[in-house]
């Protein structure tokens, strides 16, 4: 474990917590007897969260952590895997099933056909992988899928008029975690002999590059202290 990877995992964890906080806010808001102004805004405007991206992430974790009960690595590793699995599936459940949260989900805007991401990633994983075994192919699939899983969310943000802070922070933290992982891979390449994993590295690089324009608009909105807005 190195500082870059720990920082990456913590950033990833924070992105999940921000999303859970946002869902909690929507839930608690609608529970109020009086429609406070914030509640009114929350319930009227869409949450800006893409269910498609959340479903893709649930699939990423489900296919990445197949070995959670067979290969024990560390308590930390197992606990983090359980947190990511539990949170991603419960977020999908909330947006799909929860009577209040699903009202804030704008399915007319979240129209990205994520099937068009799943199939190519699966085919690519069948062709390019480190070992042609069931677990290895699914693990490679999860890497390719995670690289593109954010696309529905980014497209939804372009369509969402006013991106609220929590959603913007969620996407920022999600992009930052993989950027920190790239530093972790560089560090491990120089400190551990034979540590070479091109598939992981290239997927991680592509994933981070997809956030490039978001990072640009995110930082410029922070610098100019204006509302985050992605050009359509």
């Amino acid at each position: 474990m190195n500082i870059f990877r720990l920082a990456g995992d913590m950033t990833h964890l924070m992105s999940v917590l921000v999303l859970l906080l946002k869902i909690h806010t929507i839930k608690s808001c609608a529970g109020k007897s009086y429609p406070c102004s914030l509640c009114f805004i929350l319930l009227e405007s869409s949450s800006g969260i893409s269910l498609k991206t959340q479903e893709l992430y649930a699939l990423v974790f489900a296919t990445r952590y197949l070995d959670i009960f067979t290969d024990f690595i560390s308590v930390y590793n197992t606990i983090m895997k359980l947190i990511f699995l539990g949170s991603s599936f419960s977020i999908v459940w909330y947006i799909r099933r929860h009577k209040i949260v699903r009202r804030s989900y704008d399915k007319d805007q979240d129209t990205f056909r994520h099937f068009f991401l799943v199939l190519p990633c699966l085919l690519l994983a069948l062709i390019i992988n480190e070992k042609f075994t069931f677990k290895e192919v699914l693990w490679t699939f999860s890497l390719y899928l995670e690289a593109v899983a954010i696309l529905p969310q980014l497209i939804l943000l372009q369509r969402t008029r006013n991106i609220d802070n929590l959603t913007g922070q969620y996407v920022f933290l999600l992009g930052a975690y993989r950027a920190l992982y790239i530093l972790n891979w560089i560090y491990r390449y120089f400190t551990e002999p034979h540590y070479v994993h091109w598939i992981t590295w290239i997927s991680g690089l592509v994933q981070t590059l997809l956030y490039a324009d978001f990072f640009y608009y995110y930082f410029s909105s922070l610098k100019n202290n204006v509302k985050l807005k992605l050009p359509a």
């Binding site: 070995d67 067979t70 290969d71 690595i73 983090m80 990511f84 480190e130 540590y195 994993h197 992981t200």
Partner: peptide
């Protein structure tokens, strides 16, 4: 069962 080291990451 020690897994290969590339799987020790999340």
């Amino acid at each position: 069962i020690p897994s290969d080291e590339s799987k020790d990451e999340l």
